[in-house]
Design a protein around this nucleic acid. Structure first.
Ligand SMILES: [Mn+2]
Ligand SMILES: [Mn+2]
Ligand SMILES: [Zn+2]
Ligand SMILES: [Zn+2]
Lengths: 155, 155
DNA sequence: ACCTAATTGATACACATTATCAGTGTTGAT
DNA sequence: ATCAACACTGATAATGTGTATCAATTAGGT
């Protein structure tokens, strides 16, 4: 774990606790443990992965509580559920502005990005008479690190 | 059912039968029945909805066969699975070029559209070093018909 | 008509998520 | 510190999709 990870983790932990506070929820030990684990996941994860890691810290914590926490965090917008090719993935996401996700099909790493002109999407559906309310854009590709291994240098 | 619906349905039915033929699959009564039902759905549907309508035509047809047919049709590209906010949706889709879907949040009707410049998406992720493989864009909004009822004329 | 492999429906299974519920722990008020 | 309200908990059952199995049926070429 690098110091950046630690710093990111504690910022994330802080934001999540604040978000739960803001909803008048209580501070409990299981919740604290689960939040620390969520903050420590460096990439999108399945509910099962999270459950396993949580069990590694405290085997008493039940599966239901993990799902309950995921729901709370999704409600506050700090965790999003993405549709991966092999099922649903949850991801910690601190960006508050509108954005999208790219997932590396090799290593699973996810990054966020924005379109230069997001309104192009609204315009596209307006051409067929729809008024856009919201949209979900999900991109799959190969991340910079994985490109090094798969793409021969072009020379 | 308007005559357009009927015409569309028979075109769709035809395409689906051809697609199954092309894979060397057999013509059976259950399959024919199910295909007719799929061709008759005017909008995205859940597997459960389809199963129910099929049962209305022939209660003997099993749930497994419905899922099997959906798989075959997805394999030939004539049916796509979309991630709706409340679970997976299947939709009959005859467009062969790259395109996207808009779903009306009021009536559920879906239409297809294309972006003027689809490569804008690839460019956006290239800016952060990713090479795009594919992307999924799903829009939610209000269709022309439903806009009439919800939007006051601006005068 | 006959053979073979595809297809079928019933059933069991796998999996993620949610609902229930009786006990427990947190919290704010006293 | 005491206390009562009620949020929270884990165990368990239930749901909802989708898949795997399998013996019986059937399509379709010969
Ligand atoms: Mn996000
Ligand atoms: Mn489509
Ligand atoms: Zn990667
Ligand atoms: Zn509509």
């Amino acid at each position: 774990m690098t110091s950046e990870d630690t710093a990111f983790g504690s910022v994330a932990l802080d934001l999540m606790e604040r978000a739960l506070d803001a909803q008048g929820l209580r501070h409990t030990l299981p919740r604290r443990t689960m939040l620390e684990v969520v903050a420590g996941m460096g990439r999108p994860f399945t509910a099962t992965e999270l459950t396993e890691r949580v069990a590694g810290r405290d085997p008493h914590i039940g599966r239901a509580s993990v799902f309950r926490l995921l729901q709370l965090l999704r409600g506050s917008g700090l965790v999003e559920r993405l549709h991966g090719p092999d099922g649903e993935l949850y991801t910690l996401c601190l960006a508050r502005e509108h954005h999208h996700h790219v997932t590396c099909t090799v290593c699973g790493q996810t990054a966020t990005f924005s379109l230069e002109d997001d309104r192009a999407v609204a315009r596209a559906v307006e051409r067929i008479g729809f008024r856009m309310e919201h949209h979900v854009l999900q991109v799959f590709g190969v991340c910079p690190a994985c490109r090094e291994h798969t793409e021969e240098p072009s020379r």
